[in-house]
């Protein structure tokens, strides 16, 4: 029996229709990410990193191939089950914070908990988490009232508040200065370790990539390097 957050990819192909025919943006024959590990995905712009991350999180649908997380083959699931899986097992962090602007910091987290049905004493959970992430006392603020670094830390908090088994991060530090970038990466690594989650992080930054236990490089949609 595989680990609950082990990721296996087989013969994964994603094609986008264009005027001149289908354009292949991802062609990943085999990829296995052990559960509870950290993996960075690197590559040039347009190499298919974000597409791969989207398919791993069930946000995108491949043209063919399969993605299995633990014992669940995501690509075989109907839409509503895929949504449910993503809701309960996956936490996303993006380059943009993508916080809901009309919700306070605490409410953004409360919503995430509510979506996963974890609504028991959410205030305490949220308060503890914010404290841990250095955001204590900011729960009542709206995202517009925070700095970029603070917003991105709230985004990390939102990705982990429901204790996902897989954390997917797409250039989470792309819009941050070095100091904030390091802090965010540290937060992700701490969370991954605390939750025992599988962290897959897309990045251009070699130093960040090296902070992961494993790096996968994509070129033109295919894996070209896997140390």
């Amino acid at each position: 029996m595989s680990a609950p957050n082990r990721i296996e990819v087989h013969d994964l192909v994603v094609e986008h229709p264009t005027a001149s025919g289908a354009r292949r943006v991802l062609n990943c024959q085999e990829l296995t990410i052990a559960g509870g590990t950290t993996t960075s995905i690197t590559g040039r712009s347009g190499s298919g990193k974000s597409t791969l991350l989207g398919v791993l999180g069930g946000l995108g649908t491949p043209t063919r191939g399969s993605v299995t997380i633990g014992s669940t083959t995501l690509t075989d699931l109907p839409e509503h089950e895929r949504v449910a899986f993503r809701r309960d097992a996956v936490g996303f962090v993006y380059q943009a914070d993508n916080l809901l602007p009309f919700l306070t910091v605490a409410e953004n987290l409360e919503l995430r908990l509510a979506l996963s049905g974890l609504s028991e004493s959410p205030e305490q959970t949220i308060e503890d988490l914010l404290e841990r992430l250095g955001l204590g006392g900011l729960g009542h603020r709206l995202p517009d009232q925070l700095s970029g670094g603070q917003r991105q830390r709230v985004a990390v908090a939102r990705a982990i508040v429901h204790r996902p088994s897989v954390i997917l991060a797409d250039e989470p530090t792309g819009a941050l200065d070095e100091e904030n970038a390091a802090a965010v990466i540290q937060l992700l690594l701490d969370a991954q370790e605390r939750l025992g989650a599988t962290l897959v992080l897309v990045t251009h930054d070699i130093s960040i990539a090296r902070s992961m236990s494993r790096t996968v490089e994509l070129r033109d949609g295919s894996i070209v390097s896997e140390p």
Binding site: G57, L59, E79, H80, V83, A84, F85, R86, R87, D88, V90, F92, A96, N98, L100, P101, L111, R112, L115, S116, R158
Partner: peptide, 14 residues
């Protein structure tokens, strides 16, 4: 649209 997609990504049902 980004809000809606964010909600989708967080597992909100269509």
């Amino acid at each position: 649209r980004r809000e809606y997609v964010t909600l989708r990504a967080q597992g909100m049902l269509p």
